[in-house]
Design a binder for these strands. Structure first.
Length: 549
DNA sequence: ATAGGCGTTGGGCTC
DNA sequence: GGAGCCCAACGCCTA
């Protein structure tokens, strides 16, 4: 295997110094510039992962098993990834040091007690890590510690792209692709594969532990067949990657559906997303693998529909998310349409708990709860359902549920997709939201016929959609009541919802147009009040055509 | 400045 | 019933 990396800082650390690599994402030893640089010229290397109790401790008040922030499936996936990382480090003569506590507290103590001279960690674009890293940087700089924080989670450096675009992130995928071009590292010198790492130094009085088990973290372990079938870790990720690219024809001809839903169903997806999310698999290595297959093929698809195109989507969303303040909310988010969403917790809970009464929606939500992963089109389905004519719930609420339950939940991508599917950003066809055909008039309570996204689900292999119903007892009990005669009535009246939704969106659209998207909270409040008193039918041409009577 | 083209748009209609 | 065509809508981009 050959890996490339971004260039090293010109000032090399003096030999004989103590180095620390801080793992967050990037849970791998292949294509890991931070690890590589930390190892260079160091006699002692401390590979550290910090478990923040705030995010890992059980939270019994949450709506699903897990911590305050993450569902149990993702916590398990992370622990498995850490165990694998530890094993891989051990093969190189090192090991993973697991520490518990507030990350900055723990890091400050490590840096001073171990006399660290060089601190390395992968650059992270998420606001949470940005603020954390700021503090660490300040501390380290003041203490005269060298810092190396390379961009290796994405193909491109989001900051570079934004600079190229004159200071703001590109607003469309196409312009992103044009701007990005070929990644710079495809032509830069390759990093040799790691043969061994410096040994771990004396850890002093630190309470170092092995990677904890689910039980040790205080969770009740569930039977294996109730867990996600996707096992975490670099080894498993690379195995999956290898299996995926072995089918060269599939890689070269990968294409998103065009009109014919069945063309989408046939190829199995790679299910590499969770491994990319945690950095168990390097997106750059993945890129190189795909490129190599394509080089040896006469004909292949190209972005946006190709496999490379999918990786570019990921980078696109990372770039926009990095360059947009308040990306994860509607308020004060420049690229987000301001819409007076309803705030109905009952409806949200019905959706979240897979008891909306719409079989396919509930099936997908069951799959989310059980596996923490579902087909991307299935995600689109339930996201549209929640934010459109049926429930009309704020996209932030749905986003929260996904963020908790998905094993591949990725801050930038998750928020971007929810804005996309709620017509809040990237994509703005309001008529789609209140269109009766989407989830309105032609709705079939048995889910047999629906146009748009739904036929795809209907034709999907059973294990994708219906598998949760053949699942373990605890799930079966719930599922039986869903598929049996006593299937709950739909939680909302489609026609009513559609009508109401139309009105709200029409008003919102008009206001947005006037104010160019800069609605204040007051504007939204006025909008809601106006809806109450003003029930006139909308006037737009398009609306006339889609009116339900 | 403004108009026309474009988009992993979507919907309706016809054959 | 489904593929293919036309058209509607919206914001961004380019000329």
């Amino acid at each position: 295997m050959r890996f490339s990396a971004i260039p090293y800082p010109t000032t090399m650390a003096s030999s004989g110094s103590n180095s620390l690599i801080w793992f967050r994402k990037g849970l791998r030893i292949h294509d890991n510039p931070a690890l590589d640089y930390a190892a260079r010229g160091s006699t002692v290397l401390y590979p550290v992962f910090v478990i923040d109790p705030r995010y890992m401790e059980p939270d019994p008040s949450a709506f699903s098993p897990g911590s305050n922030r993450a569902g149990l499936n993702r916590i398990r996936f992370l622990l498995e990834s850490l165990v694998d990382l530890d094993l891989n480090l051990k093969k190189l003569g090192s090991r993973l040091l697991v520490l518990k506590g507030e990350p900055t507290d723990v890091l400050f103590r490590c840096l001073s007690e171990w006399s660290i001279k060089k601190l390395c960690f992968e650059f992270d674009t998420e606001p949470y890590y940005q603020s954390l890293d700021d503090k660490i940087r300040k501390y380290a700089t003041a203490a005269g510690i060298e810092i190396y924080s390379p961009v290796s989670h994405t193909l491109f450096n989001p900051a570079d792209i934004i600079e190229k675009n004159g200071g703001k992130p590109p607003s469309t995928y196409q312009s992103f692709v044009k701007l990005a071009g070929e990644p710079s590292w495809t032509s830069s010198p390759l990093v040799s594969h790691l043969n061994r790492l410096p040994s771990v130094g004396n850890v002093g009085s630190f309470p170092i532990t092995e990677v904890p088990s689910i039980k040790e973290l205080g969770y009740e372990d569930t039977p294996e067949d109730e867990n996600t079938p996707f096992k975490g870790g670099e080894s498993e990720g690379l195995r999956r990657l290898k299996a995926s690219i072995e089918n060269k024809e599939w890689v070269a001809n990968f294409e998103k559906p065009k009109g014919d839903p069945s063309s989408f169903i046939k190829p199995a997806t790679t299910v590499l997303s969770p491994y990319l999310k945690f950095g168990c698999v390097s997106s750059r290595y993945f890129y190189q693998c795909i490129q190599e297959v394509q080089r040896n093929c006469k004909k292949h698809t190209s972005p946006p529909v190709s496999l490379l195109g999918q990786l570019l989507w990921r980078d696109f969303f990372y770039t926009v998310a990095f360059g947009t303040p308040n990306f994860d909310q509607m308020k004060d988010n420049k690229i987000c349409k301001q819409i007076p969403w309803k705030n109905d917790d009952e409806l949200l809970a019905a959706w979240r708990d897979a008891r909306t009464g719409f079989p396919w929606i509930d099936a997908i939500m069951m799959q989310l709860r059980k596996w923490g992963w579902m087909h991307h089109l299935a995600r689109h389905c339930v996201a549209c359902f929640l934010t459109r004519g049926d429930l009309f719930v704020h996209w932030e609420k749905g986003r929260d549920v996904f963020e908790r339950l998905l094993i591949d939940s990725d801050w930038a991508i998750n928020n971007a997709n929810w804005m996309w599917l709620s017509c809040s950003s990237f994509f703005y066809q309001y008529n789609r939201i209140y269109s009766p055909i989407s989830f309105g008039k032609k709705y079939d309570p048995n889910g047999n016929y629906i146009r748009h996204f739904l036929p795809i689900l209907k034709d999907m292999p059973k294990e994708y959609i219906y598998e949760p119903w053949t699942a373990p007892m605890s799930i079966q009990v719930k599922a039986k009541c869903i598929i049996g005669k006593d299937y709950p009535k739909p939680v909302v009246d489609h026609n009513l919802a559609s009508k109401e939704c139309k009105q709200i969106l029409y008003e919102a659209y008009e206001l947005n147009k006037r104010l160019k998207g800069n609605l204040s909270g007051e504007d939204l409040e006025n909008l809601r009040n106006k809806q109450e008193e003003d029930k006139r039918p909308p006037k737009s041409k398009r609306l006339k055509q889609t009116t339900i009577d």
